[in-house]
Each structure stands twice: as structure tokens, then as C-alpha cells.
């Protein structure tokens, strides 16, 4: 089996596993929708205010949803020993782990991306912003998965890794949050956001590199 075949075999396997356990796909998505619905309820029916904070609300919810889903990235594989088999295989572990992260993003990140426009309309964001919102999510959620994978790799061996995981991962998510929600806010006031989009793209590339290095050591 060549390396690329191994890469896609792992993606296929993880997608198949996720399809068999559909709650894994549904849970982060439901969480995302629920948190976003809670904000208008907590703030009262003030459309102006809700529209103003919508970019931040969507991004913070996406961040939390991504973090909640992280634990499933290595957990079952660690428990049943297949993670060890992956590390023992003759292929470079960093590539195989990257495949797992890609599959994880397809299962948990992509659904967020698909449902985000609906929620944006829900919160009263103007239609012109939807494109930018999708762009930031498309660039940002993979970064969340890649950076989060490092945190999971460091904590997967722990019995109570959940709390410590949020402490490790959330500070590292901050730059993504700042630039992404800033881009959406700027776009809703009609400004050019190519700078933020470029920085997010740079972060994505950087995250790919750091992830490959760090996960090897981490797992």
C-alpha cells in the first residue's frame, strides 16, 4: 500500500465509523445550534444588538462545538489500541494522524460550515456577509481541528483529560477567533476583509506544519 492509499484508507475508515455512529456527527452540530439559539433568549428580543454581536456569537459557538468534538478524535482508537497500530505502521505517523484530523474535520467541521448560513440569517446578519462568514469558517475550522488535535494528543492518555484539554486548547484558539469574527464584523460594515482572510489562510498553513511535527511527539 502506498502512502497516499494509506492516507485515504484512514479517512475512509474514520468516515465509515462516524456514519455507523451518527450521534458523533449530530452532537456537535446540535450543540452549535443550541448555543446560538440561547443567545437571543438570554439577550431579549433586540434585533439590533443580536445582529451586532452575531459574528462573535457564531464564532464562539463554533469554537466550543469544535472543542467538544475533539475528544472523539483519538479516544476510541486509543481505547481499542488501533492508535498504537497506526503509530507502529511503516508509514510516517504524522501523515496518518493528519488523515485522522482531516476525517474528523469532515465529520465535525463541515456540518458547522453547512448550517452556519442558516444561523446567520437567524441572527439577522445581512446576506452580503454570508460569503465572508463561510470563507472564515472554511479557513478557520480546519485550524481548530489541527490545533485541537495537538491538545488531544497530549491529553488522550489521561483519565480526566476533558478539563485540562479546554485549558490547553482554548488559548491557542484565540487568534483564529479574533481574526475570523473581526473579518465578519468588518464585512457587515462594508469594509474589505482580504487582510483577515489572508492571515487566516496563513494560520491554516502554519497549523498544518505545526500539527505534523507536534502530533508525532505528542501521541
Amino acid at each position: 500500500m502506498s502512502l497516499s492509499q494509506a492516507f485515504f484508507a484512514i479517512i475512509r475508515r474514520d468516515l465509515l465509523l462516524a456514519l455507523r455512529r451518527r450521534s458523533e456527527i449530530a452532537n456537535p452540530l446540535l450543540f452549535f445550534v443550541l448555543v446560538i439559539t440561547l443567545f437571543p433568549l438570554g439577550l431579549g428580543a433586540r434585533p439590533q444588538l443580536i445582529q451586532a454581536i452575531a459574528p462573535g456569537v457564531i464564532w464562539v459557538s463554533a469554537l466550543l462545538a469544535a472543542m467538544l468534538s475533539l475528544d472523539s478524535l483519538f479516544r476510541s482508537d486509543f481505547d481499542d489500541g488501533s492508535l498504537e497500530q497506526i503509530l507502529l505502521s511503516p508509514y510516517p505517523a504524522s501523515i496518518l494522524i493528519l488523515a485522522k484530523v482531516c476525517a474528523h474535520w469532515l465529520v465535525t467541521g463541515l456540518p458547522l460550515l453547512l448550517i452556519a448560513p442558516l444561523l446567520a440569517v437567524f441572527l439577522g446578519l445581512p446576506n452580503t456577509v454570508l460569503g465572508v462568514l463561510m470563507q472564515t469558517l472554511l479557513l478557520g475550522t480546519p485550524v481548530l481541528s489541527l490545533v485541537g488535535a495537538i491538545g488531544v494528543a497530549l491529553t488522550v492518555g489521561l483519565r480526566r483529560g476533558g478539563m485540562i484539554l479546554s485549558l490547553l486548547v482554548l488559548p491557542l484558539y484565540v487568534p483564529v477567533l479574533i481574526f475570523a469574527s473581526n473579518a465578519v464584523t468588518m464585512a457587515s460594515s462594508g469594509l474589505v476583509v482580504s487582510a483577515q482572510i489572508n492571515i487566516l489562510s496563513a494560520m491554516l498553513v502554519l497549523a498544518f506544519g505545526v500539527n505534523a511535527l507536534a502530533n508525532c511527539g505528542g501521541v
Binding site: V147, I150, L154, T155, G157, L158, R160, G161, I164, L167, L168, P171, L172, V210, A214, G217, G218
Partner: peptide, 24 residues
Amino acid sequence: IGLYGAIDDKKTASKAVAILALVG
């Protein structure tokens, strides 16, 4: 500090801490 405290095996813990510091 939390990660170091959470891992019992101090050898693994220092490795994890080093990676986290480098990422940070």
C-alpha cells in the same frame, strides 16, 4: 502547569509540556 500536574509519569509529562510550550 495543569498538564504537568495531570500526567503521573513525569517523563511523559515533561515531554508533553515541552511540546505545549513550543506550540504556545
